[in-house]
Design a protein around this nucleic acid. Sequence first.
RNA 1: GCAGAGGUAGCGAAGCGGUCAAACGCGUAAGGCUAAGGACCUUAUGGCUUAGGCCUUCGUGGGUUCGAAUCCCACCCUCUGCACCA
Length: 911
Amino acid sequence: MVKFNLKEIDKKWQEHWEKEHAFRPTVDTKRKKCFITVPIPYPSGSMHLGHLFTWARADIYARFMRMLDYNVLFPQGFHFTGGPIVGMSEKIRQNDPATIEAFRKQGVAEADLKVFGEDPKKLAEYFSLSFIEDFKNTGMSIDWSRTFITSSLNPYFSKFVEWQFNKLRSKGLIYEGRHPVVWCPNENTPLGDHDRAVGEGESPIKFSVIKFRSEKFFFPVATLRPETIFGVTNLWVNKNVTYCIAEVNGNEKWVVSEEAISKLENQLNKVRILDKISGERLIGLSAENPLTNENVLVISADFVDKAIGTGVVMSVPMHAPFDYFYLNKIKSENPAMYSSIKPKKIIIVPGQENLLEMAIKEFGTSDSGLKAATKKVYKIEFNLGIMSDKTSGLEGIPVKGAEKTVTDLLDKHKTHESLYELTGRVVCRCGTEGTVKILDKQWFIRYSDKEWKTKTMKLIENLKTYPQEIKLQLLNTLEWLDDKAAARTSGLGTPLPWDKKWIIEPLSDSTIYMAYYTIADNIEKMNIEDINDATFDYIFSETEKDTENELVKEMKDEFNYWYPLDMRVSAKELLQNHFIFFLMNHAAIFDEKNWPRSIGINGWLTVNGEKLSKSKGATLTIKKGLEDYGADELRMIAAAGNGMDDVEWDPDTINTFEPRFEFVAELMELKKTFESGPNSFDAYLNSRLIYLTEQTKREMENFRYGAAMSHSFFELYNEIKAYMELGGNDEKTVRQAVMAFIKLNHPFFPHITSEIYSRLNTDGSRIQPSWEDYPSGIRNEVLENEVAILRNTIDDIKNVLRLIKRAPKKITLEIAGEKKFELYNKVVAEARRTKNTNEIRKTLRTSDKLLDKLLKNVNRLPEKELNGNLELKVLEEGKNYLEKAFGCKVEVSRNTENERAVPGKPAINII
RNA sequence: GCAGAGGUAGCGAAGCGGUCAAACGCGUAAGGCUAAGGACCUUAUGGCUUAGGCCUUCGUGGGUUCGAAUCCCACCCUCUGCACCA
């Protein structure tokens, strides 16, 4: 019995690799190279099974490429840039129970916790080291001599990022501008999705503010549909709301709700409150529509919300259900005063003339009903509506285009501003209501740049993507990609070189660092003061200026050898943010020959139906996993899926790992019992080996490890077992099959395969398996068919025995005569061409019972012709197995007469 | 809302025009092996069937084809991303 001590084997080989520097490649221009990366993790917690899924895939790729004799570089750094690490440290210092509990759960000692609270850097370092340990313990073939951290904590890396940003700026791809963000007024910081207690996904939306002039001041109304200004019949205020009269930007007096004041201020307006006035007192005033110059009345309505917009609303009854309903209401309440107000229809939807009335009928006049009606009316009018003849000059143009025309017109009259509102309620984790703030003098990367996008499109077209579909998604993302704020005022990171109060934010400083790996070890040997933009220009560009500095020369050589990046592996959530920036920045900064070659994207891992997010993952850490399982066993996780779908990983699968390897290893120890004397089953197994090797390789190359492993691990194992069972007993064949098993599975399970390989490969010619001598050649498909027939026959016998419910005394198998095989093979040949039975009948021009039978199930015919003599031989050789399995005498013969004997289906007689 | 991916047996997951009642794995059941449990081995696992057969299935409803899990159309449902956030 072979028994493996997996823990010992893991340790043995990990130490071996470490000692040999097995994964620390050097520049060797004679060899083909392969450069692989996975996005740098943010070390704010422990590595969990979700991480392992992605990294195992990268490592399998790395090991596979090494077996194909590539010089493989697979380095790994850590991302310190950003806010959360600092935030966590802060929370620990404040004794936040939830945060502290989360760290304790991951096994962090109290003394360490204390240190985390004092210094965020220590926290990040702690988890970086923890990651490295987990990577090593799971057998990741990472070159640790090139690891680095980001942010100003690593001045060398900061120099590199400064070079990148200076470069982008010099190409005109960075500019200073303003930008609305969701803002926490308490913490004075932008509120990202992760910082919110309520309102994930909500964002600022731009309202038009149109100013209606009245005698003493302006009524600024906020609207999402400025084109409806032609249909305004009145303005709405709320009599129960307190309004402010305020001087805005020095020269105009506006009437707005009290709540609107801080919004205006946050959005870069200078506001001075002059007076406060009850909504009641605004009723009855009139104001001038800036486009139509009509005077409209100010009326009170309860639905006007002081917190939305300016607290002043324009009423467009024919296109807004709220306005329609409330106007009718006050008209009926006070006809004398308001009956003269006549709604105007300014948008026509062909075929839906009574759209608004129908919508109100459909949803009712409750608040929620009117809301639903509004949604419907807006949507239909926006998409299908056409401006009517009551819209001086805009008649006939679609609503879709009218908005811009109207705002342009209003701008010309200087009666239009804008105001951002949130698409929904946002509450900060600190409990404060979020709001919109416009950040001034913010730095942007011009990702909207047409020329840049075109260049990137070219890059993406030449990029190999696994799976294929993600290329389309990248191109689509490129289309809507807009400018991105590149810096913030808090968190770790590298300051902008020309404006040091800004810190470059994490998604922007992590776009080209893969190039940094090629120099990461050497650059730290330099004096930091000697490094400047010229150094990097020299290293990373084509220019062949000479330099005295040998070290810099070496870095240039390293870069030239290793770049471009051959493969980048990640989970799908990074595709439309990190990956697109990564590609765009490469297009901008590097020469075309250094653009990335391929990317591999995987889905999310679920375990027992649960997604492994950061919080859930805390309970499924690698450290916990390694307590129960060997490294290779955990690595079976890579088989969990092939494409971008979320994949469920079933830990029970692990149970099948050890017995299979034990069985395979045992085969070699038992070799003395093998008699030599190859038979059909040897040729059969060889043929299957060739097939499964081809399949495995193909799936490996396509980055489909689930499929690859199912061939290399499960199917191959089954084939070897079937071979033994049917009576194969040739030592050479078994050895070859075992070797194939070891080799094909080496990328997945490097420890145990190395162990078995080293035991088998006693001449010591090779330390690590290679694909150089994997089984190859031409398959014997006819033989494969015939063995399949033997197996089907076995099934059929069992089937029959079950039916007759008694033990057989004797079984005879009669194989069809040669004539039948001739006809059969003719049909098979025809069926390859067409499966149309009438056509086959026509070409063969024979009528025969057998032909009828075959044509009845055309689609069950094999691809290849059968051979009667071979069928006889295979069944003869399977006789031993049959006799043993069924416990009776078995006879195999050829019988031309037996009606039931059909090629591929011998007649079975049970006595 | 926009963009992309997907819905297959008890579960996970292959298959992407014809050897498809559907690979492979897990689970479950029976038998073997065990002092026993685990592991392991054998068999079964859509339904019916006393001779290898038949019938019904691949989100729902249509369509194309000699033939559809696979192609087309519509609908329902799920997942991912949508930016200052790693």
